[in-house]
Deep mutational scan, measured.
Amino acid sequence: VRQEELAAARAALHDLMTGKRVATVQKDGRRVEFTATSVSDLKKYIAELEVQTGM
């Protein structure tokens, strides 16, 4: 499950970095929206997932 969450989070980051205004991911069973202003929060979430998956 964590691998899927990590892939979704990375895709969301890619979307935001390429101009999409809002990206949505499932985080702990709930839907979370990230915007360009919350990229740093999304990067932290990705880092947490990488630690949890041993990457």
Rank of each mutant, 00 (worst) to 15 (best):
V1Y: 13
V1G: 14
V1S: 14
V1K: 13
V1P: 14
V1R: 13
R2E: 10
R2T: 10
R2Y: 13
R2P: 14
R2L: 15
R2V: 13
R2H: 12
R2A: 15
Q3T: 12
Q3F: 14
Q3E: 11
Q3N: 11
Q3L: 13
Q3G: 10
Q3D: 10
Q3A: 12
Q3H: 13
Q3V: 13
E4L: 14
E4S: 13
E4T: 12
E4N: 12
E4M: 15
E4G: 13
E5Y: 10
E5W: 08
E5T: 10
E5Q: 12
E5C: 10
E5G: 05
L6A: 02
L6K: 01
L6H: 02
L6F: 03
L6N: 01
L6S: 01
A7P: 03
A7H: 09
A7C: 10
A7R: 13
A7N: 12
A7Q: 11
A7T: 09
A7Y: 10
A8K: 08
A8M: 13
A8N: 09
A8H: 07
A8G: 06
A8S: 12
A8L: 12
A9K: 01
A9R: 01
A9G: 02
A9Y: 07
A9W: 04
A9I: 04
A9F: 06
R10M: 09
R10F: 05
R10C: 08
R10Q: 06
R10E: 03
R10P: 00
R10H: 06
R10V: 07
R10T: 05
A11H: 08
A11G: 06
A11F: 04
A11D: 06
A11Q: 13
A11E: 08
A12F: 03
A12N: 01
A12I: 03
A12L: 04
A12K: 01
A12P: 00
A12D: 01
A12E: 01
L13V: 02
L13K: 00
L13T: 00
L13I: 03
L13D: 00
H14T: 07
D15W: 05
D15N: 08
D15T: 05
D15L: 13
D15M: 11
D15A: 12
L16A: 01
L16N: 00
L16E: 00
L16D: 00
L16K: 00
L16Y: 01
M17F: 05
M17I: 06
M17L: 13
M17Y: 06
M17N: 06
M17E: 08
T18E: 08
T18A: 13
T18Q: 09
T18D: 08
G19D: 04
G19N: 04
G19H: 04
G19F: 02
K20I: 08
K20P: 02
K20F: 05
R21T: 14
R21G: 10
R21I: 13
R21K: 13
R21W: 06
R21C: 10
V22C: 10
V22L: 08
V22D: 04
V22W: 06
V22Q: 06
A23H: 02
A23E: 03
A23Y: 01
A23P: 02
A23Q: 03
A23M: 02
A23I: 08
A23S: 05
T24I: 15
T24D: 06
T24N: 06
T24W: 07
T24V: 15
T24C: 13
T24H: 12
T24M: 10
T24E: 09
T24F: 13
V25T: 04
V25E: 02
V25L: 11
V25N: 02
V25M: 05
V25Q: 02
Q26T: 14
Q26Y: 15
Q26R: 08
Q26F: 13
Q26D: 09
Q26I: 15
Q26M: 15
K27F: 08
K27L: 13
K27T: 06
K27A: 06
D28E: 08
D28T: 03
D28G: 09
D28F: 02
D28Q: 06
D28M: 03
D28N: 10
D28R: 04
D28S: 06
G29Q: 04
G29M: 03
G29C: 04
G29Y: 02
G29N: 05
G29E: 04
R30Q: 12
R30H: 11
R30T: 09
R30K: 15
R30W: 07
R30L: 10
R30C: 08
R30P: 02
R31A: 14
R31T: 14
R31L: 15
R31W: 15
R31Q: 13
R31I: 15
R31H: 09
R31M: 15
R31G: 07
R31N: 12
V32Q: 06
V32K: 05
V32D: 03
V32S: 03
V32E: 05
V32M: 11
E33K: 07
E33M: 07
E33N: 06
E33R: 08
E33Y: 12
E33T: 09
E33A: 05
E33G: 03
F34S: 01
F34Y: 15
F34T: 01
F34D: 01
F34I: 04
F34N: 01
F34E: 01
T35C: 09
T35L: 06
T35H: 06
T35E: 05
T35P: 04
A36N: 08
A36K: 10
A36R: 11
A36L: 15
A36V: 12
T37W: 06
T37V: 09
T37R: 07
T37H: 12
S38I: 04
S38V: 04
S38G: 08
S38Q: 15
S38E: 15
S38N: 15
S38M: 15
V39G: 02
V39A: 05
V39F: 06
V39T: 05
V39D: 02
V39M: 15
S40F: 05
S40V: 10
S40W: 05
S40I: 10
S40G: 15
S40Y: 05
D41W: 08
D41R: 06
D41A: 11
D41Q: 10
L42W: 01
L42H: 00
L42Q: 01
L42S: 00
K43H: 07
K43Y: 11
K43W: 08
K43A: 08
K43Q: 11
K43S: 05
K43M: 14
K43F: 10
K43G: 03
K44I: 09
K44W: 06
K44L: 10
K44T: 11
K44V: 08
K44M: 10
Y45S: 01
Y45I: 07
Y45V: 04
Y45C: 04
Y45K: 02
Y45N: 01
I46L: 04
I46A: 01
I46G: 00
I46T: 00
A47I: 09
A47Y: 12
A47H: 14
A47D: 06
A47Q: 11
A47T: 08
A47F: 12
A47L: 13
E48Y: 15
E48V: 08
E48R: 07
E48P: 00
E48H: 09
E48A: 08
L49W: 03
L49I: 05
L49T: 01
L49R: 02
L49N: 01
L49Q: 01
E50T: 06
E50R: 04
E50K: 04
E50W: 05
V51D: 12
V51A: 15
V51W: 13
V51H: 14
V51E: 14
V51Y: 14
V51S: 15
V51K: 13
V51Q: 15
V51F: 14
Q52S: 11
Q52R: 10
Q52T: 10
Q52E: 13
Q52D: 10
Q52G: 09
T53H: 10
T53Y: 15
T53L: 15
T53E: 12
T53W: 14
T53V: 15
T53R: 07
T53N: 14
G54Y: 05
G54C: 11
G54W: 04
G54R: 09
G54Q: 10
M55A: 12
M55D: 11
M55P: 10
M55Q: 14
M55F: 06
